Simulated scan of single mutants.
Amino acid sequence: MHTPTPTRMRAAAIVAAGALLLTACSSAGAPAETSAASEGTSEAVEAANAFLAPWTGGAKAGLLIDEPLSQPIAEGTRVVYLDVGTPVSAVMWENLQAPAELLGLKLERVQTGRDAQSINTAMNTVVELAPDGVINITLDPVFFESQIKQLDAAGIPIASGSVMNTTEFGLPEAFNGPDWMKLNGEALGAAAVARSGGATELVFYNVPEFPFSEYELAGAQERIAALSPEATVRIVDIPIAELGSTAADRIVSDLQANPDTGYFMASVDEVQIGLPQKLELAGIDVDGIAMWTAPPNYEQISTGQQDATLGVDLSLMMWTVLDQLLREINGQEYTWPDVETRAAALTQIIDSENVPADPVAGYRAIEGYQEQFAENWLVN
């Protein structure tokens, strides 16, 4: 999907015609404007690439908390995983299996659903299970505030990933909270500028039910405004219920209605699963980038159907969230590093040049991190 779009071809034809006309004319004003615009685009792309250095291999990755546990975790410790039912959530669950086996944990999976009633029912079940700890990925605590109080009273900690308001509900701060999401949103914005060659009509596909989506959007808008003030970012909401079903259709309809769009961004890469085929059928060639990559996204990149993704090492993420939970279970103090270190430690721009050979394993940020965790977890 890297052949010139009809829009880009029309733009190229206009530029070429303009160049011929300028050659035939004696006016000196227009060429200066054309040169200035070209220079501005080049500067924006150059600045975008410079900003992206930490997300293109320029950052040294390491464990976010690299110190031993205060004491070993007892075999048979029970941990509940809250599954919100998305494809990425299923990947997260699978990524918990290896560290759980290493530690001898007893993992239990509770399907939360997506509406308030089903979440409330699921969280009542969690309270009844009385586990030693809970892992929550993306579920907004506003939906289970009463159960948080019950779990806290029972001394059962909750560690979170991709949850933006943990501290508001007395929960430990997630390593990838609002600042982390916003900075990675800036990376999405910079990538849109760089990979589009400085396109000025962009769109962001937002999933409002995911609290982190608005932070990614804010970061993308802020970085694009700083890099390319003349660029516009259209915002299109995609309901969470459409992920895995009609999300791609909504994107196709939007791009058909806005044929001058130069590049798109999305808060979750699930919206791109199956999208290339539908874009091709519709005669649309617009590239894009998103975050929270699933295996099919890596497959699409490897076959040239998808331009890029902001890959997250989902395995390392789950080991990191579990590591936090273990420290909470032990009542052990810890400190996250600064947001710049955290933001690029688990994420990287992935395209056809560095796409993982194994789409299921996906992007891996640190070689041998399992052994490092095992040492910190006092596993013999």
Score class of each variant (00 low, 15 high):
Arg114Val: 11
Phe264Lys: 10
Glu46Thr: 15
Glu168Val: 01
Phe144Pro: 12
Ala74Trp: 11
Ala225Thr: 12
Gly368Leu: 03
Ala290Ile: 12
Val84Cys: 04
Leu326Cys: 05
Thr138Ala: 04
Ala36Arg: 10
Ser160Cys: 08
Ala218Asp: 03
Arg109Gly: 00
Trp180Thr: 00
Ser42Val: 15
Arg114Met: 10
Gly262Met: 05
Asp313Cys: 12
Pro54Asp: 08
Ser315Tyr: 15
Pro239His: 13
Glu367Met: 07
Glu201Cys: 07
Ala357Pro: 02
Gly85Gln: 00
Thr86Trp: 03
Pro356Asp: 13
Thr56Cys: 14
Met164Lys: 00
Ala122Cys: 01
Ser315Asn: 15
Gly219Ser: 00
Val84Gln: 03
Thr320Asn: 12
Glu216Arg: 03
Asn258Val: 11
Cys25His: 13
Ser228Ala: 13
Trp292Asp: 09
Thr3Asp: 11
Pro359Lys: 07
Arg342Phe: 01
Thr320His: 14
Ala47Val: 11
Ala11Arg: 14
Val193Phe: 02
Glu39Ser: 14
Asp351Gly: 03
Tyr263Glu: 07
Val163His: 01
Gln277Pro: 04
Pro99Ser: 05
Glu375Asp: 09
Ile366Lys: 11
Pro229Gln: 15
Gly274Thr: 06
Glu186Asp: 05
Leu378Tyr: 10
Leu151Pro: 04
Arg223Ala: 02
Pro229Glu: 14
Pro211Thr: 10
Pro239Arg: 14
Gln277Asn: 11
Ala220Pro: 00
Ile350Tyr: 03
Glu67Gln: 06
Asp179Trp: 02
Pro6His: 07
Asp313Glu: 15
Glu108His: 14
Gly40Leu: 13
Arg327Leu: 08
Thr335Cys: 05
Gly198Arg: 01
Ser302Ala: 09
Leu103Lys: 00
Ser302Leu: 10
Gln306His: 15
Lys106His: 15
Glu214Ser: 05
Pro356Val: 10
Thr309Glu: 11
Ser160Lys: 03
Gly85Trp: 01
Gly170Ala: 11
Leu243Met: 11
Leu325Trp: 13
Ala357Thr: 08
Leu107Lys: 04
Ala194Arg: 05
Thr320Gln: 14
Thr77His: 02
Glu280Ile: 03
Gln117Lys: 15
Lys278His: 08
Glu101Met: 05
Ile349Met: 06
Val355Ile: 09
Gln117Ala: 15
Asp140Ala: 02
Ser146Trp: 12
Asn95His: 10
